[in-house]
Design a protein around this nucleic acid. Structure first.
Length: 225
DNA sequence: ATGACGATTTACT
DNA sequence: GTAAATCGTCATA
């Protein structure tokens, strides 16, 4: 079913990234994250899971309390800027900066349904897997997590601060489909247990029933949308 | 200079 | 279910 590039595909404009993080997190579902390699090869996937990080007041965000460091500087940039960070000594995560410039809000892209360049994504994932990894790598798991999708798409720190609008080889396309309200699950965010009441705020969104959504603790996301 | 800690993934019991 | 892997970043000194 996923065919290649649609003729109608259109890159998102600056203004479409300027909304608040929660709105953008929902709006990005169904959009396509695209990377174009040097030789013109396209790697892309439909966004099926996102999380909103609201900025200064959000204790789960890297920008909590207005924290501004070399690492999270990109969060303070123009809407449509890529914020990529390195964590756990081995993983990268990709965010889209949103809101007004100077206000540190972003949307973490947590999972994709691969569309183009699936073979390359698989190679990238296998190469990035820890030494000793033996289990089969299922297609459905190529991009089913924030670090997995970065590995598959080849997104690393060199993309941090990149403008997705003027875009080099990384941008977001309108794919011509977005889930309706009944097709979206809204849950608490993953991996932010340290953030007090912000840990349970419903700021994660998934395309309901998508097999490409991340499975935390081995389970599919529960709860209604 | 040093120590603690991840917006995770994987393997193993 | 638990635990290991692995290192840049930040706060403290």
């Amino acid at each position: 079913m996923p065919e290649g590039r649609s003729r109608r595909a259109r890159r998102l404009r600056r203004g479409e990234f300027a909304s608040d993080a929660a709105s953008l997190a929902v709006a990005l579902l169904g959009k396509r994250l695209v990377r174009v390699l040097g030789d013109g090869t396209r790697l892309s996937g439909e966004i099926v899971e996102t999380e909103a990080y609201l900025g200064v007041e959000d204790l789960a965000a890297h920008s909590a309390g207005g924290r501004r460091t070399a690492r999270n500087e990109a969060m303070y940039g123009r809407p449509g800027t890529a914020y990529v960070y390195f964590t756990y000594g081995m993983h990268h995560c990709f965010n889209v900066v949103c809101g007004a410039e100077g206000e540190p809000a972003a949307v973490l892209v947590r999972a994709l349904a691969p569309v183009e360049g699936v073979g390359v994504m698989r190679e990238n994932r296998l190469r990035a897997r820890p030494r000793g990894a033996r289990s089969a790598l299922r297609d459905v798991d190529l991009c089913s997590g924030p670090a997995r999708l970065c590995a598959a798409m080849g997104i690393d720190l060199s993309f941090n601060g990149l403008d997705l609008v003027r875009g080099g080889g990384l941008f977001v396309e309108c794919a011509g489909w977005s889930p309706g309200a009944g097709e979206v699950l809204n849950t608490a965010r993953v991996g932010v247990g340290y953030a007090g009441r912000w840990a349970v705020a419903p700021l994660r969104w998934c395309v309901a029933g998508s097999p490409h959504v991340s499975r935390v603790g081995g389970a599919a996301p529960a709860g209604g949308g």
